[in-house]
Amino acid sequence: MALLEMTGIEKHFGGVTALSGVDFEADAGEVMALVGDNGAGKSTLIKTVAGAHQPDRGRIRLQGREVAMRSPQDAWKLGIATIFQELALADKMNVPDNIFLGQELRRTILGIPFLDHKRMRQRTRELLADLEVQIQDLDLTVEAMSGGQRQGIAIARALNLDADLIIMDEPTAALAVAEVRKVLDFILRLRGQNKGVVLISHNIQDVFAVADRVTVMRQGRIEAVRRVAETTPEEVIGLITGAHGVDLSHRSEPGAAGDPADGPDKTAGQARPS
């Protein structure tokens, strides 16, 4: 039983089909990379998991239990922490406010839940230290901060949630080399804590550096799922672009042998013609 199982997900926007019959899964203690070209549907899929979209069709199961998330808050509550590509930070607010946005710590006085500023600042310092993010003044507004610091704050927010599943959409896209290293180390650490990590990335190097499995999407469908150890960057890129002669015969017969929709176990170990 995987941590996250999505089956038959469909999502349309107007006349555009963003996702058609997508089956996706990620497991605890593993890093699942999600790759694909622009417009492949990665962000849409992830937003569906994060509760920002509702699928038109399909089911989502968390640890075997079926869930329906009507808003991002539902997702947070179910232990899914998403770090969106656009970071979803409130620019004019300071660091602790951003980290605790939607998850504010409270202190009840006479039955009224006041904000516990002290504890939030304390926890912010802990989280930032843990992630080795240097921010001199916690009261600065985040819009003035660098890409690396902003990414750090977004990750701190997800970390604070102590989620079971962490989804990161292009976390290294705008970062310098040293910062990228930090993010990748962090991902490995999460895996070490037996959490599930879904990593969307354009960067095949990053994928091969940390991921256990990789799901390739193309034009709203799952093209393939591979164990990273059993494939190469060239093959993955080929699958992304559809350039190489991939055996597509399985497509015409749903449920035929080797159909990635059957789950990764069946494709594991099977060499595919490239």
């Binding site: 994060a50 920002a52 808003s71 991002p72 808050q73 997702a75 947070w76 509550k77 998403t82 969106f84 656009e86 970071l87 979803a88 930070l89 409130a90 620019d91 004019k92 607010m93 406010d97 605790f100 946005l101 939607g102 998850q103 504010e104 409270r106 009224i112 839940p113 006041f114 904000l115 927010r157």
Partner: peptide, 21 residues
Amino acid sequence: HAFGRHLYAIGSNENSARLAG
């Protein structure tokens, strides 16, 4: 109170506020 935080967040970036739950 959290209400105030939420007001600032919505005013700052409504989309982010929504995504933050």
